[in-house]
Structure formats: structure tokens, C-alpha cells
Amino acid sequence: MRRVTPEIRAEIEQLVAEHHWLLDHGQADQLYTLYARDAVSTGPMGTMEGRDAIKSWGEKRVQVDAGLVRHFSGGTRLAFVDGVLCGTTYYMTFRDSQADPLMPASVGEFREQYVEQDGRWLIHRREIAPIFGGANAAAHAQRLAAGAKP
């Protein structure tokens, strides 16, 4: 059984942090670089299959006024399951469009699978699973899809 080394943990935690930073700082058009070629991402924003779909979504996202958003995450659990590196990371999302921006817009889990390609770890599958505030996340996704200000 393969063990999660400190080096693997550091690389995965940096991968997750970079994902949040790009999204929160208007660079969603670069998110695709963190995903495997055949990646799948699913959640309130819909399902995207393949790196090209994730790239297209990110390019559209930077064109929409999504408001000020910040993602905070931690508590990442990593384990190899049947030879696949899997992770669960808890998150909180804050948006300035909320009635009280100091209250999380949603709280949940990123359930991920990772793959090593070209000498680095990438996201192979990402499921965004809101546990609290799922209706907020879905409404935000609809506003963004419509191209409207949140």
C-alpha cells in the first residue's frame, strides 16, 4: 500500500491553495493548468469534462463580474484508495454579494482524486459538495451563468 509522504501532501495542499487563489483573484482562465487532460469537475457550477471544458469555463468566468469572493480551506485528508490518491478538503466560501458578507456563503467539501502527469500532481476529479449553503451556491452559479452581477 502506497503511503502519502510529506512531499506528496505539500504538493497537493499547494495545488488546492493555488486553485483557490486563481479563482479568487480573477485568474480563473488559468485553472485548467491544475487539471489532468481527462479531468472531470462537478458541483453547483455544473459538470465539466476534460481540460478544454474547464479552460472554456474559466475564460467565461473572468468575463463575468463575480464580485469579491474568498475561499478558505483546510483539514485536507489524503489517502491512496485502490492505488488512486484521493483527498477531502473542507472549505468555506465568502462573497460580498451575501446579505452579511461576514457569514459564509457556503461550507462544504472538495472531494478529489489526483493523478501524477508530466512529473506533477494534478486534479483528475473534483466534486464540489456544499454541506451548508447549497442553495446559496446554486443561486450564485445561476447568476454567473446568466452573466449578471451577483
Results as ranks from 00 to 15, higher is better:
54 I>F: 09
60 K>T: 08
69 V>L: 12
57 W>N: 05
49 E>C: 13
60 K>G: 11
75 G>I: 00
53 A>E: 14
75 G>L: 06
59 E>P: 09
56 S>N: 15
59 E>R: 11
70 R>G: 01
49 E>G: 13
72 F>G: 03
70 R>H: 08
64 V>F: 07
63 Q>H: 02
73 S>E: 10
61 R>F: 14
49 E>K: 15
74 G>Y: 00
53 A>L: 09
54 I>W: 09
75 G>R: 01
62 V>Y: 02
60 K>S: 14
53 A>P: 05
75 G>T: 12
52 D>G: 08
68 L>I: 08
58 G>T: 10
77 R>T: 08
49 E>F: 03
63 Q>I: 00
57 W>R: 12
73 S>L: 11
49 E>N: 15
57 W>T: 01
55 K>H: 15
68 L>G: 13
78 L>D: 11
57 W>V: 02
77 R>Q: 12
68 L>M: 07
50 G>W: 10
70 R>S: 07
62 V>C: 04
62 V>D: 06
59 E>I: 05
71 H>F: 07
49 E>Y: 10
63 Q>W: 02
67 G>M: 06
77 R>K: 14
68 L>Q: 06
78 L>R: 06
61 R>I: 07
78 L>K: 07
69 V>D: 02
58 G>F: 11
65 D>T: 05
63 Q>T: 07
71 H>L: 03
55 K>E: 15
77 R>W: 04
67 G>D: 04
59 E>G: 03
70 R>A: 07
72 F>I: 03
75 G>S: 13
72 F>L: 08
56 S>E: 14
60 K>V: 06
63 Q>C: 04
52 D>P: 08
75 G>F: 00
67 G>V: 05
50 G>F: 11
68 L>W: 10
74 G>E: 00
52 D>F: 09
58 G>W: 12
64 V>N: 03
76 T>N: 01
49 E>Q: 15
76 T>D: 01
67 G>R: 03
65 D>A: 09
61 R>T: 12
64 V>T: 13
67 G>K: 04
76 T>G: 01
65 D>N: 15
72 F>N: 02
74 G>C: 01
54 I>T: 04
62 V>G: 08
51 R>T: 11
78 L>E: 09
69 V>T: 15
77 R>Y: 06
69 V>E: 08
61 R>V: 10
74 G>Q: 03
50 G>T: 10
78 L>Q: 11
53 A>H: 07
77 R>C: 01
71 H>S: 01
75 G>Q: 09
73 S>R: 05
77 R>V: 12
65 D>G: 07
63 Q>R: 13
78 L>C: 12
55 K>W: 10
54 I>Y: 12
49 E>M: 12
76 T>A: 01
76 T>L: 04
51 R>H: 09
52 D>V: 09
64 V>S: 00
73 S>W: 06
76 T>Q: 05
69 V>N: 05
49 E>R: 15
59 E>S: 08
63 Q>V: 02
72 F>K: 02
78 L>A: 14
54 I>A: 03
78 L>M: 10
76 T>C: 02
76 T>S: 05
72 F>A: 10
60 K>A: 12
70 R>L: 04
69 V>M: 13
53 A>F: 07
61 R>C: 07
60 K>N: 14
55 K>M: 13
67 G>L: 07
